[in-house]
Design a binder for these strands. Sequence first.
DNA 1: GAAAAGGGTTGCGAAACAAAACTCATAAAT
DNA 2: ATTTATGAGTTTTGTTTCGCAACCCTTTTC
Lengths: 160, 160
Amino acid sequence: MGKLREPLSELATCGLPSALEVMGERWSFLILRAAFNGLVHFEEFSSELGIARNILSNRLSRLVENGVMRRSPCEHDRRKIEYRLTEKGHDLLPAMLALRQWGEKYGENVSPELVLVDAEKGQPISPISIHAADGRELGWHDLAWKARDEVGKDGKGEGC
Amino acid sequence: MGKLREPLSELATCGLPSALEVMGERWSFLILRAAFNGLVHFEEFSSELGIARNILSNRLSRLVENGVMRRSPCEHDRRKIEYRLTEKGHDLLPAMLALRQWGEKYGENVSPELVLVDAEKGQPISPISIHAADGRELGWHDLAWKARDEVGKDGKGEGC
DNA sequence: GAAAAGGGTTGCGAAACAAAACTCATAAAT
DNA sequence: ATTTATGAGTTTTGTTTCGCAACCCTTTTC
């Protein structure tokens, strides 16, 4: 450990603040989860989540603004509106599952009856984790920082 | 798609709300990132993050309460206190990286100079994603729910 | 044409957040 | 030994955000 001191101010420009700006507010992740589970209408989100209507309205707008969801009026019933995940929204699935798995591992009274499985084989998915390009699983101490413009030169960094 | 309607109320008991209760407040994830980068002292977090002192104090307390960080007085300088990640805290790394990668993929002006690499080979880590037990990469449509007490029986679910 | 459903907006009190000043214990400097 | 500085907080005082209830407007249903 150590050796990670100098890059710190540099790290301020990493993707995390940017991600949190979009998904960091209360409810955003729960709305996302509901969307993954097939909910599309305002009233569905409202009654599933028990969130206040003005906040829900605000969050949906923000998610749409940020390209995570798409808002489209319903054809056959023009009172209704559909909120659906975009590609960008679908790309949040790993982050959401990682968070969720962590919550399940450590949460107090969390032992869900239902489990996510690989639909083809019926086996539970494996815990989300970090992998090297060649597939080896990595922990924090197996990682190092490297300047973007010189990846793939030496080897044997000293990890953290 | 479809077929995910009935489990919904059941899903309320998944790990996500529990995870968000611990990590869902403003700053929690950024404090975590700073901790991963080796910061340990109150003043370090304070000056790195630019967060108000009372909020930082509150967040650190909460993270300690929830077992994400450990608080220990410094031996050789008893003014100082060290905040370090616990095992539980380290286990948040995949979630944090997934979020971060998403932010880097879609964020406006985010193209960090430094990149996380596999320390051994010097190659960038692969994007965090979802894998079946046998290693196949999975998307949302390859997933299905299954009752916990009967995993590993049929196969060929219809995905979502 | 009245009632209900869907998707919001408005107004207001409660809670969370932020900025600055203040405390208190320890450590360093003189 | 006294002063000064540091580290880690608390307190005080505003400012946003949240949450609830009520209201509004449009489209459907009866």
